[in-house]
């Protein structure tokens, strides 16, 4: 078998192993963390909603939306309707035409109050419409610290340096709570000898997620009691609920596996 044949076979093997999971990872930075919400929109004569996590996570913690407002962590599971928005729930918690952020009034959701195909509706119901998500993202990204993969932003550094100040309380929606007492960081032993252990920072995760985002739904486990694998994470369980979808992808091994092994 000559050199060229070997290359061709290698390419075929690579293509054959390129499945949906790999395709998922090749996403343009401005589309990383994008969720298409299409439960009811098309039946109502509207385009599906394009939800960009990057827009929202620059302004709010994950906890605020996924605990206080109650958005499910699973795509399509919340079943948002015009009625819920109109009552000030889900998107309508902020998109009500009254709530202000940084001195600007947040536009109201189109919950039966505006005409169909109105420009207001298309700000969210924008799949295959003319939106400039890419351009807006580029402008936003210029000021942000960079990191490889995902959408290329080091969100943790952006928060710790004060470039973004995600809000964790929404008047009339959130419950007043004392500041969280973060648990200590701990190490998670890698399942294989050649990989460094994970140093898990409760502090970093608790800032964005509080307690309820992760426990017990995603991590119903006590430390060390259950072993989970990279295959499970890759299939969207445990760390994979966020990492690979919104938080930086698991291909970036050394951002978690930081423990000294040797």
């Amino acid at each position: 078998m000559d050199y060229l044949q070997r290359i061709v076979i290698l390419l075929i093997l690579l293509l054959a192993s390129f499945d949906e999971a790999d395709a998922r990872r090749i996403v343009a930075p401005h589309n990383y963390g994008r969720v298409i919400i299409a439960n009811y929109s098309e039946r109502a004569g509207l385009a599906p909603v394009v939800f960009n996590h990057w827009v929202h996570r620059a302004q709010y913690t994950c906890r605020l939306c996924h605990v206080d407002i109650g958005f499910a962590m699973e795509k399509g599971a919340t079943k948002i309707t015009a009625a819920t928005n109109k009552q000030g729930l889900y998107c309508g918690s902020c998109h009500n035409g009254k709530y202000t952020y940084n001195g600007k009034t947040v536009f109201a959701s189109c919950s039966g109050t505006t005409s169909r195909n109105d420009a207001v509706c298309e700000r969210c119901h924008s799949l295959k419409k003319n939106s400039d998500n890419e351009g807006e993202f580029k402008v936003f990204m210029e000021k942000m610290p960079r990191k490889s993969l995902g959408n290329g932003i080091d969100w943790e550094a952006a928060e710790s340096s004060g470039l973004i100040k995600p809000i964790d309380f929404l008047e009339g929606v959130s419950v007043q709570r004392p500041p969280i007492k973060a648990q200590k960081d701990f190490s998670i032993e890698a399942n294989v000898a050649w990989m460094s252990d994970v140093i898990f920072s409760h502090k970093k995760h608790a800032f964005w997620n509080g307690c309820e985002v992760c426990h017990p739904e995603i991590f119903p486990i006590k430390k060390g009691a259950t072993r989970y694998t990279m295959l499970e994470i890759d299939s969207g369980q445990y760390c994979g609920v966020c990492h690979d979808k919104v938080a930086f992808p698991i291909l970036d091994c050394q951002r978690c596996h930081t423990g000294a092994k040797y």
Binding site: V67, A83, L89
Partner: peptide, 24 residues
């Protein structure tokens, strides 16, 4: 219906966390 859906989920999250800490 809508309030029930939102607040039952939120209550369940609180309960689950408290029960989880109790168990641990």
């Amino acid at each position: 219906e809508t309030q029930r859906k939102v607040y039952l989920k939120r209550l369940q999250m609180c309960r689950d966390l408290l029960a989880f800490v109790l168990e641990s």
